[in-house]
Design a protein around this nucleic acid. Structure first.
Lengths: 159, 159
DNA sequence: AACATAGGTAGCGATTCGAAACCAGTTGTT
DNA sequence: AACAACTGGTTTCGAATCGCTACCTATGTT
């Protein structure tokens, strides 16, 4: 990834620690997956994920706190709470899908019955990849770090 | 995401639990990031990440065990060990970058000094997204689950 | 030989997890 | 109105994990 080494310690310089702060705890991603699959109630998450109630309560609270989910009492049955994805939560879909595709590609005994397809034509979605601005797919060695103020000045051989 | 609900409990039916089994513990993703940035030695990971030695030892062993990193004694200095990414590890780059981009977009106080660019022309890489087979970008509501044996039979209105 | 370095391991308090029991507010039933 | 059942929690407490420090062993340096 080029000769410029990132400063890994500086939290403000990389979004990864921030993302992990929100999504890095156990169950968080599985709760998110359940949310993407249409589950909205506490009992649904609990029974489908088999997670302890206190942990689920903690994680849902955390996701709400960080703006990934909203928490609203159900209008028709005030015992129920509706947890729904925010736009910020929906933005996690590429990351979740990439992780999932990696698990399916490299995991053992993964044989998914269901395939994620383009609803418009029923064709499976493409594997998540890194693309240049113009759409070319980029691999690890096509990438480099560049100071923000220098962006655009690079070229072949810059790394 | 359509009316077909996934079976969330069945481990063999989804790669996400498998991915989280490997990468879901604390520090694993940050170690991976360090590896992508060229760090290969125990002491480098330790000092750059500020992680306790026993935990680091545990995580590195786990990543090696799962085939994300290789562990080889350094030829020139046999005290040193070289931890290097395997192809399976490199395959995690889109997932890591997607997570990171999410953190940068939605986190607080994220102001990265360095930008990931296409080394060929110095232009920033595109945000990670979900694409159809033909390259169209797809959003959450463009997606559906389909039984594997039915793939290709879908079409407008199938959901 | 003496010392420093690299990569771990061991011990131990602090935190977190997780199973089960309990609780409060709402809804359904009689 | 009385009572049971349901929903979304909180509390409790033992087990596992985290993380800091000290220590250990093999190798390299002087």
């Amino acid at each position: 990834m080029g000769e410029l080494r990132e400063q890994l310690r500086d939290m403000t310089d990389c979004g990864l620690p921030q993302a992990l702060e929100v999504m890095g705890e156990r169950w968080s991603f599985l709760i998110l997956r359940a949310a993407f699959n249409g589950f909205i109630h506490f009992e649904e998450f609990s029974s489908e994920l088999g997670i302890a109630r206190n942990i689920l309560s903690n994680r849902l609270g955390r996701l709400v706190e960080h703006g990934v989910l909203t928490r609203e009492p159900c209008a028709v049955d005030k015992r129920k709470i509706e947890y729904r994805l925010t736009p910020k939560g929906v933005d996690l879909l590429p990351a979740m899908l990439a992780l999932r595709q990696w698990g399916e590609k490299h995991g053992v005994n993964v044989d998914p019955e269901l395939v994620l397809v383009d609803a418009a034509n029923g064709q499976p979605v493409a594997p998540i990849a890194i693309h240049a601005d113009d759409g070319r797919e980029l691999g690890w060695h096509d990438l480099a770090w560049q100071k923000r103020e220098d962006v655009g000045k690079g070229g072949p051989g810059c790394c």
